[in-house]
Structures are given as structure tokens and as C-alpha cells.
Design a protein around this nucleic acid. Structure first.
Lengths: 229, 229
DNA sequence: ACCAGATATTGTAAAATTAACACTTATTGT
DNA sequence: ACAATAAGTGTTAATTTTACAATATCTGGT
């Protein structure tokens, strides 16, 4: 015999911070809501979790519905459950982030019904956000600031082939400070996770830089190490 | 007009890892369940979240009901939402940990109805745990291993007055490795967060060690610094 | 008073890492 | 050829980390 637990039913949602790197700036994908509450406000993409999917699956689904992108690693970072965070009742939200390679077209699918539009917005110029999404964003940004020092997540924002200067830009934008070029290159190369492609950048009107690729095989060496710039 | 969102109702619970340090060992509080499912199994203390409390409040309540302790800082670390993690349906669990100062009596209140007994159990000798609680524990332990290197959480496991050797023991037990005594003391004192009480340990049959107290005023200095042993 | 047992306390030198700092090279466009 | 622009590169000093062992202090027992 299986007893039925006494239940207080509530609802779960997932909210995602999708980070992208474009024109030298860190951006996130925001949607303009088309429904109450917070109609016409900007918000993090999110949705309710359905019955037959895990939290991770739900996060991937939301990403896919919004961008058409699949197979991207998303990481859960905090669950927001304050009373009153949602005006319509008790909705607890599990927050995820992902780092995306933005293609030229920025990979946005036609927007689904719940949003009027979606845009990549510079994190330095965020509008007022719906619900407690500003808080969620703040915490997510702190998370990747810590994360980037230990894990090779910076590569995930860049095209497959990238220059050391581009990589340094990612670090500088996320950490919010300038880094020394020589020390950065020395240290980054010392990890032995970059493969020199013997290939040069194209289409620039100055000396072309060497292209590198992130070498997954050597990935493990970075784990747990503090990278301090 | 406020629309009603389409809802899939599910239930969520809080599970807590309560860490304690006793007899030189790291322990956690486990309860023996008195109800199906997993009747007679050991489990992390947990409970359903009620309608009028935030996640943090719920975690504090569970701690209080079980131990009588109040005003302890608990930290949320992950939310577990795999399908099938609970045999009776969709129950998502938000996991917290706390570090407790174990008094002589270990501060256990009479056990509430849902458990037969509760015990402090050495983390090296854990029994099989109910649900996915082993996974929750593993992740919680990893969390404090990382945390102890950046934040002064080790002090929270010790009595207010403690010796450097006791403090080193906490680090050794959590990190799972021996540390060099001279280097440990040098580094720990260099943070300037320990106040020398000019007072000696009592009741030992050998040279008594100096007692220290954690100095909250200097707390900030530790933040963000990597402590490597 | 002395000794044995147990733990506390202390310093130094080598190695590794980090931090600070500026000039030369390569390429493009005029 | 030269101006403009970013790529690429080494050394030194400072700091941090690591490795390592002898002496001091206290208790309890004789």
C-alpha cells in the first residue's frame, strides 16, 4: 500500500540566463513578455516545468524553443523561492545559465506565443526586468565570474577558432577589468588546452592574429586550478 | 484582470545536510524514517515546504524542529528534480546545508512523528540512504570542500574557543588530507581573523594549547581569497 | 625531583607563481 | 614608404607556496 503524502501543490518554473559574446560585449537573451503579469516588460526566458521532464530537460527545452539550439550544456545555479516573487501565487523558479556561441544570425527562432520579441542585450544596458529577474541575473553573473576562474567556460562563448585577444576580451568583459596581455597569454598557453591551428585571422586591416582551438583532450588539467589575473 | 496561468502542480521539499564536528570526525544528522516509502531507511532530514514560507524559512524550520536550534545560517546548494527520484510522484527537492556547533548533548530535540530516531553519523560510515539522498550528500560535501577554501565556514563547526590544532583537524577531515602544521598555522594566522584569547586549553594531560576565537570584524578579508593547503 | 609521554610551538630556504612593465614585428591602406 | 593598428614577445622583482625537524611545555607517574 502506498500512502498519499499530504501535499501543498505549487508550481515550478525554469528561468534561463543565456550568455553570449558579441561585438566585444557580454550579452544575454531577453524576451519582451506578451502576457500578464508584467506584460510588455523584459524578462529572462523561462517556462513552467512539465510533468514528464526533469529540470535539466526543461531548461534545454526552453533554450531550444527560443533559439533552435540543442545540445548545449546548461548549469543550474540557484533556486528562487521567496514568497511574493510571483504576483499570481507560489511559483518557485530554478535558474540555469548557458554560454552560447553566437553565429552571425544569432540563431533566434521565430518567437513563441508568450513573447513579443527576443533580443541579445548588453549586460551593461539591461532594462528593468520582470519579477525578481534582476536578482536572478545578478546572481548568475556572479556565478560565472567565479566559474571562469576555474573552468574553461570562456571558450564556449567564442567561435571554434579564435584568437588570444578575443579570449582575453571575454575574460575582461566577464571579470570587469583589464588584464595584462603578456601575463594573460603566458598563463593561458601554460595550461596546454589551446591548439595552435597554424592559421591566421582573415579580413582584418592590420596584422592578422594566430587562430587557436580549445583542445578538449587536455581539459582535465584546468579543473580546480585557480586562474588569477 | 489577472489571468490564471496554466499549471502543472507538483510538490517540493527541502532536504538538509547538517554538518557537525565531533570526536575529530565530520558527521551529519540522519533520521530513521518511520513512514513509507523507505520506511526504516536512513535519510537526510527534510520536509515539504508549506504555503506561507520561503525556501530559506522552510529550511530553518526543519532544522529547528529537529534540533531546537535557531538562527543558524543555512545555504542552499542545489535543487534535485529528476523524474522518478521520489516513488510517489513528482517531488522536487531543494537542498541546503548548515554547519553546526555540537554541544555536549548534541542538541537533539525529541524526534517528531516522521522519524523513529535521529543520529549524528560519521560521513565515512554512512548507511544506505533513502531516495537520492546519497547523491545529495555527495554534492553537498563537494560544495563545502570548495567553500572551506574561500569562506570561514570551518569555525562554525567548532566551539567558540578553539585551538589551532582543532581548526586544522576540521580542514583535514573536510578536505580529506593531512596538512603541514607549520604552514597551516602560518597561513591561518596571516588572515588576521583569529583573536588570541591569552587563555589555555583545560583538562588535557599534556601541554595545553592556546585558545583562539574567530574575529568577525576582520571577516571580509578572507572573502574571495584562495586558501591552498 | 626526575623522567617518560604527549602535544604545542616555532623558522628557514628553495621553488613556484604572480605582477609589473615597453618595445619590435607584421600587415593593411594610403 | 609611411602611417596606422594590433600582434607578439622576456625579464625582473615580489609574493606565495612548499618542504622540512628540533625545542618547549605540560602532565602523570615514580
Amino acid at each position: 500500500m502506498i500512502e498519499v503524502l499530504p501535499q501543498f501543490n505549487s508550481t515550478f518554473s525554469i528561468d534561463c540566463i543565456l550568455f553570449g559574446f558579441d561585438e566585444g560585449e557580454l550579452k544575454i537573451l531577453l524576451i519582451e513578455r506578451n502576457e500578464e503579469p508584467f506584460k510588455d516588460w523584459w524578462a529572462l526566458p523561462g517556462n513552467l516545468v512539465s510533468e514528464n521532464e526533469s529540470l535539466d530537460q526543461s531548461a534545454s527545452r526552453i533554450l531550444h524553443e527560443l533559439t533552435g539550439i540543442e545540445n548545449v550544456y546548461m548549469e543550474q545555479f540557484y533556486t528562487f523561492g521567496d514568497i511574493g516573487r510571483h504576483p499570481q501565487g507560489r511559483i518557485i523558479s530554478v535558474a540555469y545559465y548557458a554560454m552560447l556561441r553566437l553565429g552571425g544570425d544569432k540563431a533566434l527562432k521565430p518567437i513563441s506565443n508568450y513573447a513579443k520579441q527576443a533580443h541579445w542585450i548588453n549586460v551593461k544596458e539591461l532594462p528593468k526586468l520582470a519579477f525578481d529577474h534582476q536578482k536572478i541575473f545578478d546572481q548568475g553573473l556572479e556565478k560565472i565570474k567565479r566559474r571562469i576562474k576555474h573552468q574553461p567556460i570562456a571558450f564556449e562563448l567564442l567561435p571554434e577558432k579564435f584568437t588570444l585577444t578575443q579570449l582575453q576580451n571575454v575574460y575582461e568583459v566577464i571579470l570587469g577589468k583589464k588584464l595584462d596581455k603578456r601575463n594573460f597569454r603566458k598563463k593561458m598557453l601554460s595550461f596546454n588546452v589551446l591548439k595552435d591551428l597554424n592559421e591566421k585571422q582573415k579580413g582584418v586591416s592590420f596584422r592578422a592574429a594566430t587562430l587557436y582551438r580549445f583542445d578538449k583532450r587536455k581539459y582535465g588539467k584546468l579543473f580546480g586550478k585557480e586562474i588569477s589575473f
